[in-house]
């Protein structure tokens, strides 16, 4: 099936069609339209600006490579966001295999370990999110900020949906505690 056949069944955005046909400049337009949301997602998931910049680049390179598989069954934004989450979580799993450290866990008490609480420092929500342990931060960002369901998060993060729920409630408790201090 050719690019134009793929796009014929969707809201055939000419820029998207051109990008699918291999036009990097058309893809640049898509990039500029979406980079703000993708960087925000990467920054919140990674908790680190420099890493978020690298991940944002990876997301768009991956999107370019996979663009022919976008068939318009969902909005392009939805497709791109899901791809971005997969890129970040895949990168994290790869890093984990290298470092053998990973905090997506069924043990809720583990959420609090290793957190720099910085006593007496008032935090805004963004800073507080960045201080959440990785597993709790991932679920909080994906569920409360990005609107993914627990089942979707479970699928993407390769955890049980119950674990996702437990992490979310733990994340909220931690955040509320820090913000009200």
């Amino acid at each position: 099936m050719g690019v134009h056949e793929i796009a014929s069944g969707m809201n055939a955005d000419p820029g998207l069609l051109a990008a699918q046909a291999g036009d990097p400049d058309a893809f640049g337009t898509l990039y500029h339209a979406h980079v703000g949301r993708i960087f925000a997602l990467c920054l919140r998931l990674a908790g680190d600006s420099r890493r978020a910049e690298e991940l944002t680049q990876d997301v768009f390179v991956r999107a370019w490579e996979r663009l022919s598989s976008f068939r318009g069954e969902s909005a392009f934004t939805t497709w791109l966001h899901r791809l971005a989450v997969n890129v970040v979580l895949t990168d994290r799993r790869t890093a984990w295999r290298r470092s053998r450290r990973f905090e997506l866990t069924d043990d809720p008490a583990a959420f609090e370990r290793g957190v720099d609480r910085s006593e007496g420092v008032e935090l805004d929500l963004e800073a507080a999110i960045s201080r959440l342990p990785e597993g709790a931060r991932t679920v909080f960002v994906l569920h409360d900020v990005e609107g993914f369901t627990h089942d979707e998060i479970a699928d993407m993060a390769r955890i049980a949906a119950g674990t996702s729920r437990a992490q979310l409630f733990r994340a909220r408790r931690l955040l509320r505690g820090w913000l009200e201090r």
């Binding site: 980079v35 703000g36 949301r37 920054l43 978020a52 910049e53 929500l125 963004e126």
Partner: peptide, 8 residues
């Protein structure tokens, strides 16, 4: 929370 944040 802002939905968009431009990279530095």
């Amino acid at each position: 929370l802002p939905r968009r944040m431009d990279p530095p």
